[in-house]
Structure formats: structure tokens, C-alpha cells
Design a binder for these strands. Structure first.
Lengths: 253, 253
DNA sequence: TACAATTGTGTCAACAATACACTAAGAATT
DNA sequence: AATTCTTAGTGTATTGTTGACACAATTGTA
């Protein structure tokens, strides 16, 4: 929690520079050791978890605002980012205001306003990410998607909606370029799909279908060092991948 | 175009009641005589066409705002409405402001603000709709989707994005309940799909697939009076239809 | 009564998805 | 070095779905 002085400075600055009533919240997905991860901030008040978010500068495109916010939280540029929904219930941000309402009168208090929040989801390479807390947070950390803390405000809804959108997306678009490292094996990619869909897929059928999409290039190298037969390394054929992103696939999983 | 007095009153009222910086624009689709239609408003300045839109009351859910706006423009309640994107380029509403900038100083001028607009698309029964212009418009009318006038601001982009979303939706959700009258023939429904997708479909395969979805009920009655063999009348099985909306279909067209 | 237009229904071939089996390679164990 | 365990690579038979197409039935019109 901020001190009164900090809060006052923050609110003055916010009112000066940001569009009122509008916020951005980001659901940042990563994938590591077979688990889906989401980036969460824990407030300085212990036990309060939020999605990373922020506000839109008065003459900044919203897409750029989302990128800026994510750059601050992850250190990454050129993130795969997708707007997916606006959450606009009138009381959705009230709980947040309650926290600060005794410290500043509503008129000066940025958080006394109603906020519509624009939801973006991001797909990032877990290993490249450098999670960094903001001014309000004690920590910014990866959490397992299937072992999440309770989230404040409507952030659980935002997260669920993002996940639903991601799963739907899987049915007509390629996915993985932004979540996987440069090179990966077919079983690793399969694990990603299985994790997102939360179900087992057949190894052989997965491979056949994935290759049929024509978005993978097989390296002649193998991943050595594993305890068993060395699998081939693959990478995405970026040209075909981009084309497939635009065109879309046919069937679903 | 409004008089200075009217504008002043409008702006005072808007600032008092609406959330600043946020607007809603609606793409209302209808289907009539084999053609897709879109509802457009022509401003009192001749030749200026816009999508119907409006603003969000200070403590109104955004969904409710969209419904309210559409009720005013169409007379319809309980419309199928879907949020699809937020358009947030900083200069997107500048052109609109230019029109009024000489009549009121920026400080009092509601339209001098930057607006993010939340895009909704609606599917309505053409014959049930009663298009009604707003205060700024001379007319509110159906236009053929393939014979549109030039639209102001970024409304052409908004319309295109809505159409793309609609086409995508067709791949994993049932569609038609909101666009067709209660009873219709299979060829009529096919025409709707062909019009949205802008391509011919095979009559026999369309019927097979449509029936396989299990969302149609065939009436024992026929549509008499046509010049040829009388086709069966169908209606949607609302229970299965709703279920399919939630569940989603498999393949695409 | 023949004809044109349109609807209802059926079939076959091509393709895609599913289930499943076998072989190969690396590492640890005997 | 042979055996075994585990995981990876490839193939095939079966089933289901989609696309192309043909024919019979109904209605108004020439």
C-alpha cells in the first residue's frame, strides 16, 4: 500500500497524463516445464493479487499502451498481443477504490473513478521474460495456471475469458511461435497444446496434423542429452506461420 | 448540423451524464430479399454517413448502453448483440470534432475529446426493425452491404471488422435465429449463409450439414404460393440452438 | 400435356480423423 | 555385451466427413 503522499503524487500525475475511466489489463501466458503460467502481481498489501495493468496516455494508441505496460512488466518488446474484451460493469473497480478512499477525497482520487478495462492477452517465451513489479506491487511473478491465488476485482473473470479466447483461437490459427523457444521438439510442442486444451492428444496423429499445416521446419539436428532416443528439433517456418495466422486453419482439436 | 444553441445544450448534457472519452458504435446487420443490409445514419449535413452510435451513462453497464442505443435506433428490445473490438487510435475522432470546433470552445465542446469506441455488432430481423434517426441525423436507413456510401471517421474499418468477426463466428457457432423470421425454408436459410460468406454453397450438402447440427425443426407445412415446388418450412429449435451457441460447432464452411 | 424451374432425397469417391502396432535409439542394469 | 526400460519416429486399417453429382417429385406456365 502506498503512503498518503505517494498516493497523492500518483493521482495528480495520473489525472494529468492518462485518459480517465479507461484501464488496460493484461493476461500474460507463458509455458514452462509442461505447465501454463500466468504473470501476476502481488500488491504490497500481502495476499492481494492482480493481473498486470495500467492506463492509457492521453494521446497514445491503446495498442501502444498495452505494449508499454508489458514492456515494463516483462522487459520484452514486440510481444504477441491481442485485445479480447472490454469489461465495463459499473461497479467493477469499486473494490479497488475502497482501499484508498480514506486517504484522499474522491475529487483528487484517481481510483474513485469508474474504470472500463480493455483486456489484452499476451503470449511470451517464459525464459526470455524478466518479471518486474510496479510501484504498487511487492512482486511480479509467474503463477501456475492450475494453481492460482484468488484474484481481486474481476480479474479472475478476465483471466478466464482470455483463456477461453486462447482455446478458441487454437481451432483456427497456428499457435506456439510466441510461447516456445526458437527450437523445440515435437513432443514439447504437443505438451503445449495438451496443456492449453487440458487434454491428452495422440502422439502420432498430432505429429501428422501439425506437419500437414506446413508451418514447421525440421532441423537435421537432434536434441541430445535426454535420457532416451534423441528427438528431432523443429522451428517454425515464419513465412508460412504468418500466412496461416491470416488465413486460418480449417478444423479444430 | 446542429445550431450553436443545440450543440451547447447537447454538450452540457453529455458532459453531465456520459462517461467522457468512450463511445459505442453498432453495426446492425439485417437480411432481406437475399441481400445483407446494414443500418446507417445520414447526418443532417448531406452525404455524411455514420454507423449508429452513442455514449455510456456514468453508471450504466456498457452492454446496457449498447442495448439502449439500439432500442432507440431500431425500436427493438432483446437484440442479439456482441462486442467485438475497441478502436482506440488517438486521432480517430478528430474529424468529427473539426465539424463543430468553430461553434464551441474546446473546453465546453464534448466532441473535442478523444474517443475510444467500443464496437458491437447486432443481428436483427429486418422486417421487425423500425429505423429511427437520432438528433444529428436526417435519416436512419438500411443500406445494402455491397453498395455502401463512404463512411466518416473510421466507421468503414469498424464495419469491415464486424463483418470479419461475423464470418469467423459462422465457423463455430449457429447463426440465423436472429436474422431470419420465425419460419423459413431451407433455400432461404442457405441464401443467408451464401450472402454472409459471399460464395455459393451446394444445396444438398448445405441441407445435410444444417440438419446434422440438430438446431432445426421441420414443420409439416409447406410454403405455398411460390411458382414451383413448395418447400418445407423450418424453424429453429431454440433449446438446441442455445446449446450450440455455447458449445460451438466443429468444422467450418 | 409438355416444359421449365425448383425442391427433396440418395449415392459414391476422395479425403480426413481415429485408433492402434511396430521399429529404432539412448541409457541404465545385469 | 546383452537385457530392459523409456521415449521417439513411422505406418496402416478403419471409420467418419465432405464434396460432387443424379434423379425423382411438385408446381405454374406455355
Amino acid at each position: 500500500m502506498l503512503t498518503k503522499k505517494e498516493l497523492k503524487a500518483y493521482c495528480a500525475n495520473a489525472s494529468e497524463n492518462y485518459l480517465p475511466h479507461i484501464s488496460i489489463d493484461c493476461v500474460v501466458f507463458g509455458f514452462h516445464e509442461g505447465l501454463m503460467k500466468v504473470l501476476l502481481s502481488e500488491m504490497k498489501n500481502e495476499g492481494e493479487w492482480y493481473l498486470p495493468g495500467g492506463f492509457v496516455l492521453k494521446s497514445e494508441p491503446i495498442e501502444m499502451a498495452a505494449n508499454r505496460i508489458l514492456k515494463e512488466r516483462t522487459g520484452l518488446d514486440e510481444i504477441f498481443l491481442q485485445q479480447f474484451y472490454v469489461f465495463g460493469a459499473p461497479e467493477r473497480s469499486k473494490e479497488h477504490f475502497e482501499m484508498y478512499k480514506d486517504m484522499l477525497p474522491p475529487k483528487e482520487n484517481w481510483f474513485s473513478n469508474r474504470f472500463l478495462t480493455i483486456g489484452y492477452y499476451a503470449l511470451v517465451d517464459f525464459c526470455e521474460t524478466n518479471p518486474t513489479p510496479d510501484q504498487f506491487s511487492a512482486t511480479c511473478n509467474w503463477c501456475d495456471l492450475n494453481d492460482l491465488p484468488a484474484l481481486k476485482l474481476d480479474h479472475a473473470l478476465i483471466l478466464t475469458t482470455a483463456l477461453d479466447t486462447l482455446r478458441l483461437q487454437l481451432n483456427y490459427q497456428p499457435l506456439g511461435y510466441n510461447l516456445m523457444p526458437k527450437e523445440f521438439t515435437m513432443p514439447e510442442l504437443q505438451k503445449l497444446y495438451e496443456t492449453i486444451l487440458d487434454k491428452k492428444l495422440d502422439r502420432r496423429n498430432f505429429q501428422r496434423r501439425m506437419l500437414a499445416f506446413g508451418i514447421l521446419k525440421r532441423s537435421e539436428q537432434l536434441r541430445k542429452g535426454g535420457a532416451h532416443k534423441a528427438p528431432y528439433l523443429y522451428s517454425f517456418d515464419l513465412e508460412n506461420y504468418e500466412a496461416a495466422l491470416k488465413e486460418g486453419f480449417k478444423g479444430g482439436w
